[in-house]
Amino acid sequence: MHSDAENKSGRAVSPILEVEDLKKRFGRLNVLNGISTKIAHGEVVVMIGPSGSGKSTFLRCMNLLERPTSGRIWFGGEEISSGGAMSSDGSLQRLSHARREENVNRYRSEIGMVFQHFNLFPHMTVLDNITLAPRKVLGMPAEEAEKRAMELLARVGLTDKAGNYPSQISGGQKQRIAIVRSLAMKPKVMLFDEPTSALDPEMVGEVLSVMKALAAEHMTMVVVTHEMRFAAEVADRVLFLDGGVILEEGTPSELFNNPKHDRTREFLNKVGED
């Protein structure tokens, strides 16, 4: 069996995220065809697969940016894909739209998301980008939020950019700021949706090293990426998605050196060419 409840040290840990038979349909297009997996506390999971395999959609379902067509997602033991409408015995209670939204917002505030195109807020300074959510969602006083933002900026070496606008900094810097913006909410899980795909090659390294540092601090991470070296180096587990299902999964060495499926082998050969 795969090591879904163990991390690299082999220590058993409880899952923080659990996905059960997740399906997503866009009109007549079936993008996810039943995905189940458990993600442990502190685990780093990397998702790879050809484009259109559903990796990004799966990631976006995890923080409900896309509402699953069917299936369940548990976060820290609480079912969240129903907006908190499911009680512990599995029965669904009636909840108003507003209450479900409230529950989803609270859940999202505990899950960080980093986007391919950064999605920084262009009308705000770097500092305001980082402090907005802590102030408005967590009700953190401005001084505290700013102090925390500056500490996080120091960790990624960008304190001198605090007063700049996003248009004034490079792509690699933008993505590091975007990571900091998510971290400012003290998330329990970080989701990365192709975080280096929109970057110039020479800027990929600076973003990956921030992510490596996060992994070293035992942040739970789910990463969609084409950076196989990063996956091999950092991942506890690699999922290969194809046709909206997890076709194969395992440790990086299992999956990269000894793929079981032809599709996996084919994909790895293609991406290994460069």
């Binding site: 923080n63 940016l65 939204e101 409230e102 917002n105 609270r106 999202r108 505030s109 505990e110 899950i111 960080g112 998301m113 986007f115 195109h117 999605n119 920084l120 807020f121 262009p122 009308h123 907005l132 959510a133 408005k136 969602v137 975007a178 913006r181 998510s182 909410m185």
Partner: peptide
């Protein structure tokens, strides 16, 4: 406004109205 702006706001836990107020409308 690019839909990524709304998604970024919502992913941080801001409500729809907060995202509209602080992120979408000013732009």
């Amino acid at each position: 406004i690019d839909r990524g702006q709304m998604e970024a706001g919502r992913s941080l836990g801001l409500s729809y109205w907060q995202t509209l107020r602080y992120i979408i409308l000013p732009q």
